[in-house]
Design a protein around this nucleic acid. Structure first.
Length: 270
DNA sequence: CACTTTGTTTCCAC
DNA sequence: TGTGGAAACAAAGT
């Protein structure tokens, strides 16, 4: 479930604990967590490295290491990074020990997350623009959308078009922008793209202010849950009343993704 | 057992 | 080669 706001929250809460510290030990409890490299090679390359900076791009978390490589974490659905938890729960897949005594526990109920060591740039190069960057303007969004003729919902989920938006925030964004999820990118007016650009920033920033969301699985590094889900207006609200007009929220499938919207506020035709 | 959840990958048609 | 769409896959909950 960690999408951009969740990963940003994790980054912010870990920042002061990890930057400047070194990895002194890594207990890999689930070998499947380590992508590409063998566990042994992974640990050998990681141990002793100092963390220069911590950064988020899209849904990825990067620990920039002193050797120029990065420890890259992709939390996917249920991955969480816990800061000095009292005990190691049964969902823990790895425990990272830092030089200041900090323990980072990668906990992941469905074991879908992955970590690996690589050049951060090779991952970032595949991502579209960062929606919270001030350089992310309607013109940038328009250019990113112009190469495609696909439903706008699918476009928002394509990480090479815009980085960091997942299924729930895509629905929230389209509701805020008053755009039907099946409208294709080539039918959007300049005005609608401007509204959409604003909606993306607003929805993501609001969620970050709420310290991240998710329906039930997102856990912050301090073990607390985020609260943004209580602010969801359409996501996972099938059959409930639209908070704007009272119409029953509908659920359709777009690109095999559950998609929630208000049929009255977000008409398919303009 | 069927279906849902999210994000990515793989496969296929054009 | 690129583009779009469908399906597969991961794991666990209902």
């Amino acid at each position: 479930m960690p999408e951009l706001p969740e990963v940003e929250t994790i980054k912010n809460e870990l920042l002061n604990w990890v930057v400047g510290q070194s990895f002194i030990q890594a207990d890999i409890l689930d070998n499947k967590l380590v992508h590409d490299n063998s566990v042994e090679e992974f640990c050998n390359r990681l141990i002793g490295q100092k963390i220069e900076t911590l950064e988020r791009r899209g849904k990825y978390l990067f620990f920039y290491l002193s050797n120029g490589q990065s420890l890259i974490m992709h939390l996917r659905m249920t991955g969480a990074l816990l800061l000095n938890p009292g005990e190691i729960d049964r969902y823990a897949r790895a425990v990272f020990h830092l030089s200041n005594g900090t323990q980072l526990v990668f906990s992941d109920r469905r074991r879908l997350g992955i970590v690996w060591l690589d050049n951060a740039q090779s991952v970032i190069d595949k991502l579209g623009p960062e929606p919270l960057d001030e350089r992310f303007t309607p013109a940038v969004l328009e250019q990113a959308l112009a190469r495609h003729q696909i439903p706008i919902k699918a476009a928002l989920l394509d990480q090479s078009i815009v980085a960091g938006i997942g299924n729930m925030y895509a629905d929230e964004t389209l509701f805020a922008a008053v755009i039907h999820p099946l409208r294709t990118t080539d039918t959007l007016s300049d005005k609608e793209i401007g509204t959409l650009c604003q909606a993306i920033k607003k929805v993501l920033n609001t969620a970050i202010d709420s310290k991240g969301a998710s329906v039930d699985t997102y856990i912050r590094p301090d073990g607390q849950q985020g609260t943004a889900q209580s602010g969801f207006k359409v996501a996972h609200r099938k059959g409930e009343s639209c908070l704007t007009c009272g119409t029953s929220i509908e659920r359709i499938t777009v690109r095999n993704r559950g998609t929630y919207f208000c049929p009255r506020c977000q008409p398919e035709t303009t």
